[in-house]
Amino acid sequence: MVPLSYYMILSAIVFVTGVVGVLIRRNIIMLLLSIELMLNATNINFVAFSYYLDNIAGQVFVFFALTVAAAEVAVGLAIIIALYRVKATMNVEELNLMKW
């Protein structure tokens, strides 16, 4: 087996990729997709720890994280649809009503 740190590094790479994706994509949906990436990275981390430390709590937590991710996606996409109806744009840059 590989050392645990390898799984952590893998998770870190995926997580950072997700962060970068949040920062550089223009499309709102791609933003949410990148958030999914981040969530999955944490799932990998949890499961790896659960295996290496012989504690089932890690997997239980993944279960809940999964649940929350699903809920968040549902609501987020609903908001996006509602937003699209009003602004007719998917460009994050144009959603700047909170500008000074």
Partner: peptide, 17 residues
């Protein structure tokens, strides 16, 4: 996600932020 992407008929992204 696929549903939403296709319903909204998204155009291709032009460039990065």
């Amino acid at each position: 996600y696929l549903f939403v992407v296709m319903i909204l008929n998204l155009q291709q992204d032009d460039s990065y932020q």
